[in-house]
Nucleic acid binder design. Structure first.
Lengths: 201, 201
DNA sequence: GATTGGGCGGGACAAATGTCACGGGACCGG
DNA sequence: CCGGTCCCGTGACATTTGTCCCGCCCAATC
């Protein structure tokens, strides 16, 4: 019996997946959580063989949870299941020690198969996505540029961002400018879109 | 046997829901589509009793599809199933003749129950959401303001928007300014966020 | 020990953005 | 017919944003 932990914030999705996985003879869902912060505690209690993690969740992201799981529960294989096949997400998932990376677009049948393959030690990654991740390259943004861009993405003015990050306005403008330059875009909005699209935020 | 059409672009979600609904004794999924433009043709072929529609899809939105279904297949009850409980979405769903409005956050058990209730002529709406929709009020934006704001939301400059909508730059600036004023925000980014959040785009 | 790159900030400038006041035309309901 | 509202446009203006200089400090690296 393969013991699976399921981390997914959308109730209907989580319920449907749990039900669906429960139909498999060799799979048992031993824990369900809807908040990123609950992943590790639940895993320590339930000791799953495979953790199926969404990335976008309340609390910490599935990527952060994956990294912590690798340290605290190395026997548990992590399988990322996400809506967006962003290159940067895949890269970060691999760095966090994930064994597999699935997008929610694919057919449901893939899921149980991926769980079995991951448990067997195989890596499960969509080849198209892997190619995209490699061709896109790692994020060109420095930590600060990323922070500033993220802080400005919601419509905050330069003054807002400066206050929130304890920087001078000049500094904020400079970081935004270089982020815009590195992303090859024309303004902060396009830069933020681009960075988000690539999974750099 | 209740015949259900399922329109949802995310493969895994669609597959899981179909499987799940298939487990119910009195429900049969007679059609599945992943593109908004396929909804009406598929419905005309399969003649479902209930259409379960996502809003955000490639092709036309589930709301538009709902409106067309009401005209072309009035016997078919529409049930909207969406990720975001935006007040404007609910409002538009009702105007498009939908019988129910579910958010994907809720438990899966709700789904089959909602289908049966909708078919019985009942309306299915989350009370909290209904209250939010009423308190938020209808969109204050005129059609043009909405178009311009939507066109500017992706980082396009005023010149881009003007060219795309065949307007003068001055006009675009004026519409943006009034949209910003009406949403009570400070710039186009906040205005777009606000409008999107309320389901006004 | 010198070079490089990142973090941080200043100043000055052009361009884009947001605001305001003001027009005209169309259409609709009272 | 008149008032109101939306559509579309102008011109002027203040503010914000984006760019390009410059500087200093620090850590890693060669």
């Amino acid at each position: 019996m393969i013991k699976v932990l399921l981390a997914e914030d959308q109730g209907m999705m989580r319920g449907a997946l749990a039900l669906l996985l429960g139909l498999e003879d060799d799979i048992e869902v031993v824990a369900q959580v809807s908040d990123g912060d609950d992943v590790v505690p639940a895993a320590l209690r339930a000791r799953p063989d495979v953790a199926l993690l969404d990335i976008e969740m309340p609390g910490r992201s599935g990527l952060d949870a994956a990294a912590e799981l690798r340290d605290r529960l190395p026997r548990c294989r992590v399988l990322i299941l996400t809506t967006f096949g962003r290159p940067g997400y895949l890269r970060r998932a691999m760095e966090a020690g994930a064994y597999g990376f699935l997008v929610k677009d694919g057919p449901v049948e893939e899921l149980a198969a991926a769980i079995r393959r991951v448990l067997a030690g195989e890596r499960v990654i969509d080849p198209t996505l892997a190619a995209a991740a490699l061709s896109t390259g790692p994020s060109p943004l420095t930590d600060r540029e990323r922070d500033v861009l993220a802080a400005a993405a919601d419509g905050s003015t330069v003054a807002d961002v400066a206050a929130r990050l304890h920087l001078s306005e000049s500094t904020v403008r400079n970081y935004l400018s270089s982020a815009i330059g590195k992303t090859g875009t024309r303004n902060r909005i396009e830069a933020a879109r681009q960075a988000r699209h690539n999974g750099w935020l």
